Amino acid sequence: MVPLHGLPLIAHAVRGLLSAGCVRHVVVAAPPDHVAEVSAALASFEAVSVVAGGADRVASVRLALGAALTRVPAAEIALVHDVDRALTPSALVRSVADAVADGNPAVVPVLPVTDTVKRVAPSGVILDTPDRTDLRSLQSPQGFAVDVLLRACAAGGVLEKVDVPVLTVPGDIAAMKITTPFDLTVAEAVVAG
């Protein structure tokens, strides 16, 4: 509900999903004590519903997916998106959905890791420097064939436990995480842009 350029982050995220042209309905899993507040913030959107989220991310995804399948029973693709990536471009949403529609059971947008990464011991001493050539930062939305997401939720949300290949597609720097006051300042500048 943090405001960004006059609207809560959640409204920006929902608008981005719906403007992609491939999303038929958005279900928002809100903290149980904020369902009314989130619903009010999204009242201007027609293809949106809000459900009380669960105790953790996996439970929230499971609840949202159940509600989405009630609204769109024939859905074959589900996207899981994070509100902290509220400025994700519509083209990235379409790219993920298209890759799932092309037969990939799970798809995630990624960016190459550009920072030097260090493995550090609990004592604070640097152990080594992993080669970042094959490292990627994950973004959202993450796309799934509905049956794969259902199986992943049943496996505790660990996609590796359902043994399906996860395709990566190029992410977008605009899909930045907005989690700190600095991130919010940058996002304000981008939106005002």
Rank of each mutant, 00 (worst) to 15 (best):
12 H>S: 01
186 V>Q: 07
12 H>C: 10
56 D>P: 09
8 P>C: 15
192 A>C: 10
193 G>Y: 10
116 T>D: 12
124 G>E: 12
155 A>T: 08
38 V>H: 04
24 R>C: 10
68 A>F: 10
84 D>L: 03
70 T>E: 12
64 A>Y: 06
154 A>S: 09
70 T>Y: 01
28 V>T: 13
79 L>F: 14
87 L>F: 05
120 V>A: 08
128 D>H: 07
95 S>N: 09
135 L>V: 02
21 G>W: 02
152 A>K: 02
42 L>A: 00
84 D>Y: 02
189 A>Y: 05
152 A>D: 07
143 G>T: 00
14 V>N: 06
44 S>H: 08
135 L>H: 05
147 D>T: 09
70 T>C: 05
42 L>T: 04
175 A>C: 10
181 P>L: 12
51 V>L: 15
156 G>H: 03
50 V>W: 07
101 A>T: 00
172 D>G: 09
192 A>E: 14
89 P>Q: 07
117 V>L: 13
76 E>A: 13
134 D>L: 12
117 V>M: 04
170 P>Y: 00
10 I>L: 02
34 H>P: 02
114 T>R: 14
139 Q>W: 01
14 V>L: 04
53 G>Q: 07
95 S>A: 15
90 S>I: 09
190 V>A: 12
128 D>L: 10
33 D>I: 11
93 V>M: 01
13 A>L: 01
168 T>K: 01
144 F>W: 12
177 K>W: 12
115 D>Y: 07
108 V>H: 12
140 S>N: 04
83 V>L: 05
129 T>K: 11
2 V>M: 15
19 S>L: 09
181 P>Q: 10
1 M>T: 15
156 G>Q: 07
41 A>R: 10
42 L>W: 00
45 F>A: 10
21 G>M: 03
4 L>V: 11
52 A>M: 04
60 S>E: 09
68 A>Q: 14
145 A>P: 01
90 S>G: 11
98 D>R: 01
142 Q>C: 11
149 L>N: 00
127 L>P: 01
44 S>V: 05
114 T>F: 05
147 D>G: 03
189 A>E: 12
162 V>P: 07
53 G>D: 06
76 E>P: 04
112 P>A: 14
186 V>G: 00
39 S>L: 13
56 D>H: 11
61 V>Y: 09
34 H>G: 05
163 D>A: 10
125 V>C: 05
141 P>W: 02
124 G>M: 08
73 P>C: 03
1 M>P: 14
71 R>G: 02
133 T>H: 05
125 V>Y: 05
191 V>A: 03
112 P>L: 11
17 L>F: 07
36 A>S: 07
78 A>P: 01
135 L>F: 04
140 S>F: 07
147 D>S: 11
85 R>H: 02
30 A>W: 12
54 G>L: 11
64 A>G: 08
75 A>Y: 04
98 D>H: 05
